[in-house]
Design a protein around this nucleic acid. Sequence first.
DNA 1: GAGCACTGC
Length: 773
Amino acid sequence: MANGVTEKENPYLAHLAPKKRGSPSTSTVKEPLYGFLPRRVTADQVRGALEGDVNPFTKQPHSASYKKILEARKKLPVYAQMAEFYKVFTENQVVVMVGETGNCSRRKFRIPQFVAYSDLPHTKGKMIACTQPRRVAAMSVAKRVADEMDVQLGKQVGYSIRFEDMTEHGTTFLKYMTDGMLLREAMNDPDLTRYSTIILDEAHERTLATDILMGLLKGVAKKRPDLKLIVMSATLDAVKFQKYFGISGRGEDGKPAPAPLFLVPGRTHSVEVFYTQEPEPDYVEAAIRTVLMIHRAEDPGDVLLFLTGEEEIEDACRKIRLEADDLTNQDPDSVGPLVCIPLYSTLPPAQQQRIFDPAPSPRKEGGPPGRKVVIATNIAETSLTIDGIVYVVDPGFSKQKVYNPRIRVESLLVSPISKASAQQRAGRAGRTRPGKCFRLYTEKDFMNELEEQTHPEILRSNLANTVLELVKLGIKDLVKFDYVDAPAPETLMRALELLNYLAALDDDGNLTPLGGIMAEFPLDPQMAKMLIVSPEFKCSNEILTIVAMLSVPNVWLRPNNQRKEADAAKQLLTVPDGDHLTLLNVYNNYMQNIHDKNWAWTNYLSARALTQADNVRAQLQRTMERFEIDLISTQDQRTFYTNIRQALVCGFFMQVAHKEGEKGNYLTVKDNQVVGLHPSCGLETQPEWVIFNEFVLTTRPYIRTVTDVRPEWLLEYAGNYFDLASFPDGETKRALQRVLNKKLGKAAGRVDNEKNGSGSDERVKKKQKKNKS
DNA sequence: GAGCACTGC
């Protein structure tokens, strides 16, 4: 075999190899575990390279700044662990690596570099991938590592994220990327043959993409003895990953031996944790009280308070500011000034930056010091770190996505956080010096009520997209796929069912040619489907725009003090037949005014979201061109909107609602959920049949982004789904039956049909008349 | 007459 690797030497291969009768079991083999490519570089050699005068990658002399960075690096504990790292890395195919929280940054900078140096003489032409759950991290870490290695970003060290590929083919050998990006690459190269080592960072976050990658890579590692895998995680999950990547037949009694663990010690400061004596009935009120108490009684240091959402945060900010003002008025000499800064993702970036402002100065020299209070969502738990936080207030809640496969609805629920999450939050207090964490729940509740880990995303999501990806990756049996945590069978069934109705999978669950193309689009399957069929309706240009607009955050702005103005501006752009058409109209108007920087703002639209939509549109257009899907628009004004609405039906026929009674209630078809039109909906009337983009569960169930459709289209373009025989009895079925009867009647009397079926759209006509007058 | 936890392709 290549590289002199025999199957026996690789337990993963041995596991796959047919067992010979009477041959000794692999568990008795005592020689070194793996016989991979000879990566026997020693720590001394690497130190020599690091400290030498010439950069081994560029063959250029090391720069002065490099030498300065190197001196600092030499003091880090990881540097001292180099020899230990190379030993475990050389001897094992899979290593689970653990660093205390707060230490992760060092880990993600150094370990990939160590691998890079070890690979230098051996794996020419193959790359090292290091995945991150977030784009910003992939970008910034790559930048810093390029600096540390004294190479140019985008050359030997690069990154690859959506819309931005900073790598050079043939030159880049260390590539930081988002986990989703690596998963995309895997769809066209399931064995990831371009890579010699794959490092999954932040594995404990258990994003959907990381979870799928872990399942995939476990299989690939068995097939590819030359592939090395490093799973990096926070302490708590390590054992789970060690077991998951365990080596068959190596442990006691022939059981799997856990994958080896490599520990990188942490460097965080101690955090003292306080609990309440009794449970708090109102956590927002308790949180406000705690923040004010800290402000009055504790030493200087900034405060981070975790709340669940925008409304809660803005409310708390207001109340804390009021109370702080009261304190100041009572006795300006006893308390310092306090600033309260909200932080959540939908805040414009400039306002997010405020969290890095220094705390306010004392009112007068020698007076009590000022304090900064940041009130944040979970964004401060993972995505953004704020240095200088000394006090954390943790009410123990966050909004979490949950998926109900029975009614096919994803919603956000305020739920108790996990122990792991609580520890992560507490850790935010100890980044610069010893800190304190005030938990607004009892110690008993922490011990007994909180789950160990937050449920991984794969257990809380609609998996339609994921299942299509898995099938595209060549996974034959989705139920038997080796998940780290297997999703509920019902969730998989729902996904398979949807993909089958969309004709992405055939009745045996095999990928159809259409499904293969759908998987190439970074879109939900419904949207991919309608985009692909849209040329048949002569509106692919328009559907492309609508899909792009649906893929970005809400474009409508509605500032609290200008709601009326915002609503009026929206009204001017509204198309009465449906919100999807309104989105198209908004985009087209935006493009016509692209050079007017104030256009978005004066129309109460988010310029950021619109730019993003434009990016997404361009990317999708490239994918369409790759598959030769025509970009066309009809010139016929009479059918312009009708065609678009028909194409929408081809993707979203499973998200149809039927009007019931006169109260404006709708029933979702087949699931029979009573829903209302969301107040943001711009429909002029309440049509009998509508398709909707999402079902949201807030004060009551709503359908949002809604468009008027005709029932005969449902029967025509989704006949399989609207098979009346399988329909539950009820008003919806009877209404469809009437349409069907009428249609059959019409088909019988052709002349009649010719006369009425001119294809014109009554509402469009009406509107054109209106516009003319 | 509502609201948008957070990511990602």
